[in-house]
Design a protein around this nucleic acid. Structure first.
Lengths: 224, 224
DNA sequence: TTTTTTCTGGGGGTTATCCCCTATATTGCT
DNA sequence: AGCAATATAGGGGATAACCCCCAGAAAAAA
């Protein structure tokens, strides 16, 4: 960390308060420099492409383009900027998705300031960083979200994913049939197969399951 | 705001980053002074009792004691400190609860910095402040949470509340009947009456409704 | 090309929920 | 004491979801 040139860092968060706090923290370090800030993902991406900072610290929830979408873009085009993702929640599904988007660091916002600094430092040195609170649970076997990811993404077929998504949107079998231009009976078959694959038994089991994991499901099933 | 003595402000948030940002914003104003900061509610409360600041800005979600509990304590003992609550979400139920805890300001964290300053200023002058995004919807008639609060608490009878709570815990009519030592038919009647009062129609409407508002419901129905 | 999987339909059945009734006992309020 | 609301219980019916079976067509994989 004894380079002459300071490490350039772009920060992006739609919460002004957070942006302010983050900037203060970074500017306390003499070898770091905030080369830009953004309040939405698109602006952040444009600035990254323009100025190619060493590191970009992105909030995961931002207007126009979320942090992961920015990360995916950077990763696919092999740009040099290392991405650190900020999040409010320790959501394992997000972490695994982030890793596949080439994210180098994953920091939970409630971290102590020293932990945040340590994370940025690690990534600046070319390493990977996960907030302590996150990494603990990461290797803790099958979390709810892992089940969801594996089961919904891997085991379910395209049509089954479409159906389960529409179920989660409060549509009945008949509605789904109309929407997909297939017979209600076919939809029932799909429902039945979904229940088998997800090991759901009993009346309204699928409905309960789907409403219980509504947000997570709809996040996973965006592509359908 | 031309007093000689600066306005003393205590800030509390379990997110160090936020705390940092908040402190920076406040210290930019010459007539304001951060007289203390805390990362949990108990610490905040102790400091408020000790130093009686003019204003305390409290995050709603904090370890040990949440922001509303602190506000309630301050309010019940008629301490002079004015409370401003910070929150991530525009949850109307929280606002109404906060108002009954004597809270003077309610600021959503994603507000622009100027809005935050305006809010603190308003409360410092003895006024009440609600973030623009919040107040807009507050007077917008029947919000989801108002429906819940009014309908569930006021319109539903004791038994109906017990039943809807057990429905939200994934119990079937038969299970509920066994648990309450009444006939399944009675439970069905209660369900039916609940549906009428909540204006729910169609198959599984109650189940959908209840799962949709699970957390809110169980928060409201703690006493059952 | 052969094989497997998926998608598409259907028959027929059980059950839970919702919905419309009626009716009695109890509780609480005026 | 009388009235209203509530809790209890049931009859009977409609429908949606689940559950088992089967089978042909289409698509994907081997």
């Amino acid at each position: 960390m004894n380079d002459a040139a300071p490490i350039s860092i772009l920060i992006a968060d739609d919460h002004p308060l957070f942006l302010k706090g983050l900037r203060e923290i970074i500017e306390q370090e003499s070898e770091w420099r905030v080369c830009g800030s953004a309040q939405d993902g698109q602006d952040a991406l444009d600035q990254i492409v323009d100025t190619s900072p060493d590191i970009a610290i992105l909030d995961i929830n931002m207007p126009r383009l979320d942090g992961l979408a920015v990360a995916r873009y950077i990763h696919e085009r092999h740009l040099s900027t290392a991405i650190i993702i900020l999040t409010m929640y320790d959501d394992e599904l997000l972490i695994s998705r982030a890793v596949s988007c080439g994210v180098k660091g994953f920091i939970i916002k409630e971290s102590a300031i020293d932990d945040i600094i340590a994370g940025v430092e690690t990534v600046a040195r070319g390493g990977y960083f996960l907030s302590p609170r996150l990494s603990g649970r990461l290797f803790h076997g099958s979390s709810e979200h892992h089940i969801l990811q594996n089961v919904v993404r891997m085991e379910l077929t395209k049509m089954e994913r479409k159906v389960i998504r529409l179920v989660s949107e409060d549509l009945t079998t008949r509605d789904i049939a109309e929407k997909l231009f297939i017979s209600p009976k076919t939809v029932e078959n799909h429902r039945s197969n979904i229940c088998k694959k997800l090991k759901l038994h009993g009346k309204n089991a699928l409905l309960r399951y789907v409403l219980e994991h509504k947000e997570t499901l709809q996040r996973i099933l965006q592509e359908c």
